[in-house]
Design a protein around this nucleic acid. Structure first.
Lengths: 127, 127
DNA sequence: AACTAGATACGAATTAAGTCGTATTTCGTC
DNA sequence: GACGAAATACGACTTAATTCGTATCTAGTT
């Protein structure tokens, strides 16, 4: 498989926390928990534990200089997204990016999004 | 984190077996195992067990009229792909299909694939 | 009817995700 | 310097994925 050596694939709960970190920037457990609590009924220590595990896995880095540790995503959102999408392309689309794109675009895709995608393709003027 | 109400998301091992079933069509455990064995060192009873669990989850259907049960994917490859990609768009791309497409296309994407994607977009234009 | 090759069923072990309760530590305030 | 609020650490429990060994069941051949 591809670059699984360097990048660990986050689990679902981990991805939820990473999304918060990418949005807020570095944050304490308290701050992270406050945000996830808005949409989920997750306990404080659950968030703490997952962050600790993520730290072991090097999915996050943390600053321990203050009593409340400050966590930050170890990898950029872009890196992680690329890694996740590549994984899916490999495992569910036989390695074909175009097949994935075909499946990704459907009735529910807005005109705006299709416009954005077209822009992207135009910017790829090579061949 | 709850599951989708209607569609159960296959695990990694399950997706491997589904890929085989979509390729071969309905098949016995023996046939499935023979194919899987080419690329992986999975035991026969492991494949059997996973298929049994998939049956419980209704990821596959099976014909028990013969001694060797014949398994078939319960959902089409297209349905499953759509479901997986939608899940990823929601959880890792903030619901934005265009962001996912942007991430999916990179240096390693072949000219042929980009061409295919262009074709798809063009075909959407005249609806 | 017995044998046996080959099938399914079952159960147990391992690992990991996710959950949280409780214990312990730490620091600012009095 | 003791107290208490708030933080981390730790451990236990539950569920699920994955693995496979062993037991059991069949059905065709003798």
């Amino acid at each position: 498989m591809a670059q699984d050596i360097s990048v660990v694939k986050p689990t679902e709960a981990e991805l939820t926390l990473l999304n918060v970190l990418w949005n807020m920037g570095p944050a304490t457990v308290r701050q992270i928990h406050d945000v996830v609590s808005i949409t989920q009924k997750t306990g404080y220590t659950t968030v703490l534990k997952i962050l600790q595990i993520m730290h072991e896995k090097s999915l996050v880095i943390r600053d321990e200089s203050n009593r409340a540790h400050v966590y930050a995503a170890a990898n950029s959102q872009t890196q992680t997204q690329s890694s996740l999408i590549k994984d899916l392309i490999t495992k569910a689309f036989g390695g074909s990016t175009s097949k994935l794109v075909m499946r990704a675009i459907d009735d529910s895709t807005s005109d705006q999004e299709i416009h954005d995608i077209r822009q992207l393709l135009n910017s790829l003027e090579k061949e």
